[in-house]
Simulated assay, not measured.
Amino acid sequence: MNKRLYHAGQFVCRMFFRLFYRVEIIGKENIPSDRGVLMCSNHINNLDPPLVGAFLKRETRFMAKAELFEAPVLKKLLPKLGAFPIRRGTSDRQAMRTGLGLLKERELVGVFPEGTRSKTGRLGDGLSGVGFFALRSEADVIPCAVIGSYKPFSRIKLIYGEPLNMQPLRENKASPEQSTKAIMSGIQALLDEHKTS
């Protein structure tokens, strides 16, 4: 990861969002500064990753679909920005090892559990790999919600929730599917709480 490049890109993204949208950020204080964090967000637009990471002091290591790393420019740029690939629809062991390693090193890993953008704007089902990360690491699991249409100059809410209590699931050796369901419930709770407020 090239931290200088990352923070330069982060600055550009902040300026972009402040110029073209009315961004309201809630709950940044919920993200610990010195622990591994698995940040799980809903996914409604291609601009979600830069938005979710643009206003945080910590670098976000996003998990991104492997197809992006095959594009001529992105295949060189994304690794420098700290992103790592995952092949959707498969059991990508390399991605799992990479993600768990980052969490063990107290990094902030950003994932979109649905695996793809929602076509309806509603939260879809989460993939079990996210639950695997939560169970196999000691990272804080932070639900995140993006609310808005991304129409120019419209209002967008970005909410970082309080850490979810994953310890009972870890102690009871829950399945990745059960863990993912708990995470998706946390995201949905943020959407329900903030969508009309």
Rank of each mutant, 00 (worst) to 15 (best):
L47T: 02
H43G: 06
Q94S: 14
P79T: 07
P49H: 08
F69G: 03
K76E: 03
S41W: 02
F55T: 03
L38T: 02
T60E: 11
E70C: 12
F62S: 04
M39S: 01
T90N: 10
C40K: 11
F84Q: 06
T60Y: 03
V52T: 04
V73P: 15
L56R: 05
G53T: 08
C40F: 07
K76V: 15
K76D: 11
M39I: 13
R93V: 05
A71C: 15
A54Q: 05
P79I: 08
P72F: 09
I44P: 00
G82I: 06
P50C: 07
L51F: 06
M96F: 14
L81T: 05
P85K: 07
I86Y: 00
K57L: 07
V73I: 15
D48Y: 08
A66M: 12
R61W: 14
F69W: 02
K75S: 10
A83G: 07
G36M: 00
Q94R: 15
R88E: 08
A95N: 02
M63P: 06
D34W: 10
A66I: 14
L78W: 12
A54C: 10
L78I: 11
D34V: 11
I44C: 04
L56D: 12
R88V: 10
A54P: 00
S41Y: 03
N46Q: 15
A95R: 00
T90M: 05
Q94W: 05
G53K: 00
T90S: 14
D92P: 00
R35F: 01
K75Q: 12
G36R: 01
F62C: 05
I44E: 02
S91V: 13
F69Y: 10
S41G: 09
L56N: 11
F84C: 09
A95F: 00
R87H: 09
F69C: 10
L47S: 01
V52E: 01
N46K: 13
S91L: 12
L77P: 05
N45Y: 13
S91K: 13
D92H: 07
R93H: 12
C40H: 07
R61G: 12
G82T: 02
K80T: 11
K57P: 07
V52H: 00
L74V: 13
F84G: 11
N42K: 04
S41H: 06
T90F: 10
L56V: 11
N46A: 14
D92I: 07
K75H: 09
